[in-house]
Design a binder for these strands. Structure first.
Lengths: 140, 140
DNA sequence: CTAGTTCCTTCAGCGACTGTAGGAGCAAGC
DNA sequence: GCTTGCTCCTACAGTCGCTGAAGGAACTAG
């Protein structure tokens, strides 16, 4: 199999060249073999690994979590408790953010509903922001 | 009215001292009058302005948007279209994030549901991450 | 007077990239 | 063989919205 240049790896994984170099520096991707002219060369395994990383990032996993998941995938004989824990923690995190974002949505929607389109003096948006007492919830 | 020190302003607005100085540097708060010993002194107007800022940040508005909203609140005779636009854009942004986050939640939940607790070799979490084809949605 | 707290400036760090400058290499057309 | 334009290299600064630390000065209470 012929070596893959960083640009082609980028195209095949939809990860930007600069981001690939960043992942290398962070230790998510192994240091690749270089050509005589000092250019990085990759193989199919790198394509798979980078797709794994990109996919996990799309699902919102942090780089630190991805490191753990990558380590795990390199040891298929170990129990998957750790992967489970990482995913569970991530789910809890998502639920948390969803709850807060739903609260915000309600609040901002209410602000907009009250705006009558007059001058700023009468604008509820500005007023609501100026006074937390106007809010639906105590804590945002 | 007696001048307010930065620490007291911090206590009264629940905004950290460092953050207050940061907001000053970013132009959200005006440069305060200093004492002979070079300490910042604030008044009630600053308390109100900072509460406005904090509240808007809690509702997820960006600093740039807050600058716009603050400018508007200083011109009560102008129409509130602009405030409305800022809030509307923010709502659209929240809806966007909610949709994506809900998608992620589903995906991660599905991953967890399939994990049978065996070795990593059989773990669906790792497998799903390795292959986007396993996903519920095409685009995350 | 002393100890403890508050305040000052300046600057580095977070996470996860993104972009730029300034250069070298390479592939294709003439 | 030369030029044009793309790709690649390193090194480093910038993004957003803070946060914290270092090192020093000043205020406050006992």
């Amino acid at each position: 199999m012929k070596p893959i240049a960083i640009g082609e790896l980028s195209r095949r994984t939809a990860v930007k060249v600069t981001t690939i170099r960043f992942y290398e520096e962070r230790g998510l991707l192994p240091k690749p073999v270089r050509t005589d002219a000092n250019r990085r060369t990759y193989g199919e395994a790198d394509v798979r690994r980078l797709r794994f990383i990109r996919h996990a990032r799309e699902l919102g996993f942090e780089v630190e979590d991805i490191r753990t998941l990558l380590d795990l995938s390199a040891h298929p004989e170990r129990p998957c408790d750790e992967a489970d824990a990482v995913a569970r923690k991530h789910l809890a995190d998502i639920d948390d953010r969803l709850a807060r974002l739903n609260g915000l949505r309600q609040e901002v929607q209410a602000m907009l509903d009250q705006c009558s389109g007059g001058p700023v003096r009468e604008c509820r948006i500005i007023e609501v922001l100026a006074d937390h007492g106007e809010c639906l919830h105590d804590r945002h």
